[in-house]
Amino acid sequence: GKELVLALYDYQEKSPREVTMKKGDILTLLNSTNKDWWKVEVNDRQGFVPAAYVKKLDP
């Protein structure tokens, strides 16, 4: 199944490769191989958020 992450903080995108999220958002995790930036999908948009700003949810 899909892996989900919880947004721990608000994040405002600073480049087109990033996405904005609000604290409490549930996002689909697409790629977590980079320790600093994780690729997520939110509202049909894909992009990166700081890994420290999200937490993996237990399945």
Rank of each mutant, 00 (worst) to 15 (best):
G1F: 05
G1Q: 05
G1M: 13
K2E: 13
K2N: 07
K2A: 11
K2D: 05
K2Y: 07
E3K: 08
E3V: 10
E3I: 12
E3T: 04
E3P: 03
E3F: 10
E3Q: 07
L4Q: 10
L4R: 10
L4A: 08
L4N: 08
L4S: 13
L4V: 10
V5L: 13
V5H: 04
V5P: 01
V5G: 09
V5M: 06
V5D: 00
V5Q: 02
V5S: 05
L6I: 15
L6P: 02
L6A: 13
L6F: 07
L6S: 09
A7P: 00
A7Q: 00
A7R: 00
A7D: 00
A7E: 00
A7S: 08
A7L: 00
A7W: 00
L8S: 05
L8Q: 09
L8K: 11
L8A: 09
L8R: 10
L8V: 08
L8D: 05
Y9W: 11
Y9H: 06
Y9A: 15
Y9Q: 15
Y9N: 14
Y9I: 14
D10T: 05
D10R: 02
D10L: 00
D10I: 00
D10S: 08
D10K: 02
Y11H: 05
Y11A: 01
Y11D: 01
Y11M: 01
Y11W: 13
Q12D: 13
Q12T: 08
Q12H: 08
Q12I: 06
Q12W: 08
E13W: 04
E13P: 07
E13I: 04
E13S: 12
E13M: 14
E13R: 08
K14A: 12
K14I: 06
K14T: 14
K14N: 14
K14V: 07
K14G: 09
S15R: 11
S15L: 10
S15A: 10
S15W: 04
S15C: 11
S15Q: 11
S15D: 07
S15V: 04
P16M: 07
P16S: 11
P16N: 10
P16W: 04
P16I: 11
P16D: 08
R17K: 15
R17A: 09
R17T: 13
R17L: 09
R17W: 05
R17I: 08
E18Q: 09
E18R: 03
E18G: 11
E18F: 03
E18W: 01
E18I: 02
E18Y: 04
E18K: 04
V19C: 08
V19R: 02
V19Q: 03
V19A: 06
V19W: 03
V19F: 10
V19T: 09
V19H: 04
V19S: 02
V19M: 08
V19E: 01
V19D: 00
T20D: 03
T20A: 12
T20F: 02
T20E: 04
T20L: 02
M21N: 00
M21W: 00
M21G: 01
M21V: 12
M21T: 04
M21C: 06
M21Q: 02
K22R: 15
K22D: 07
K22N: 14
K22W: 06
K22A: 15
K23C: 06
K23D: 02
K23M: 06
K23E: 15
K23L: 03
K23I: 03
G24Q: 02
G24K: 01
G24C: 03
G24F: 03
G24V: 00
G24A: 03
D25R: 03
D25L: 03
D25F: 03
D25I: 02
D25W: 09
I26L: 14
I26M: 10
I26H: 15
I26G: 02
I26W: 07
I26N: 05
L27W: 02
L27F: 06
L27C: 14
L27G: 14
L27S: 03
T28P: 13
T28Y: 06
T28G: 10
T28F: 08
L29K: 02
L29Q: 01
L29H: 02
L29V: 13
L29E: 02
L29S: 03
L30E: 05
L30S: 05
L30H: 15
L30M: 13
L30D: 02
L30R: 07
L30V: 14
N31V: 08
N31S: 15
N31A: 13
N31P: 04
N31D: 15
S32C: 11
S32I: 07
S32M: 09
S32D: 10
S32N: 08
S32V: 07
S32R: 10
T33D: 10
T33E: 12
T33F: 06
N34E: 13
N34K: 10
N34P: 07
N34L: 09
N34Q: 10
N34I: 05
N34T: 12
N34R: 12
K35G: 13
K35A: 12
K35R: 09
K35V: 09
D36K: 11
D36E: 13
D36R: 10
D36S: 10
D36I: 15
D36H: 07
D36W: 08
W37I: 08
W37S: 04
W37T: 03
W37F: 08
W37M: 10
W37R: 05
W37D: 02
W37E: 10
W37H: 04
W38L: 06
W38T: 03
W38V: 12
W38E: 02
W38H: 04
W38M: 08
W38F: 08
W38S: 04
W38K: 02
K39T: 11
K39G: 06
K39V: 12
K39N: 08
K39L: 09
V40F: 00
V40M: 01
V40Y: 01
V40Q: 01
V40G: 00
V40E: 01
V40N: 00
E41R: 09
E41F: 06
E41D: 10
E41T: 09
E41G: 09
E41L: 10
V42E: 04
V42M: 11
V42G: 12
V42I: 12
V42N: 11
V42Q: 13
V42R: 13
V42Y: 09
V42T: 14
V42F: 13
N43W: 07
N43E: 15
N43P: 07
N43Y: 11
N43I: 06
N43Q: 15
N43M: 13
N43V: 08
D44A: 12
D44R: 14
D44F: 10
D44W: 05
D44H: 12
D44I: 03
D44V: 06
D44M: 12
R45N: 08
R45I: 06
R45A: 12
R45G: 06
R45K: 15
R45P: 00
R45M: 08
Q46I: 07
Q46E: 14
Q46C: 12
Q46V: 15
Q46H: 08
Q46T: 13
G47C: 04
G47N: 00
G47Q: 02
G47E: 02
G47K: 03
F48S: 04
F48H: 06
V49C: 02
P50S: 01
P50K: 02
P50R: 02
P50M: 00
P50A: 00
P50F: 00
P50I: 00
P50W: 00
P50Q: 01
A51H: 03
A51V: 07
A51Q: 07
A51Y: 01
A51M: 04
A51S: 14
A52V: 11
A52N: 12
A52Y: 08
A52K: 14
A52C: 08
A52E: 14
A52R: 15
Y53F: 15
Y53K: 14
Y53P: 01
Y53Q: 06
Y53L: 13
Y53A: 15
Y53R: 09
Y53G: 12
V54L: 14
V54A: 04
V54D: 00
K55P: 00
K55C: 05
K55L: 04
K55E: 14
K55A: 08
K55Q: 12
K55I: 04
K55H: 05
K55S: 10
K56H: 13
K56E: 10
K56F: 07
K56G: 05
K56S: 07
K56M: 14
K56Y: 07
L57V: 11
L57M: 12
L57K: 04
L57T: 10
L57F: 10
L57D: 04
D58L: 09
D58V: 09
D58K: 04
D58M: 06
D58G: 15
P59S: 14
P59H: 05
P59F: 06
P59N: 03
P59T: 06
P59I: 04
P59Y: 05
P59Q: 15
P59C: 08
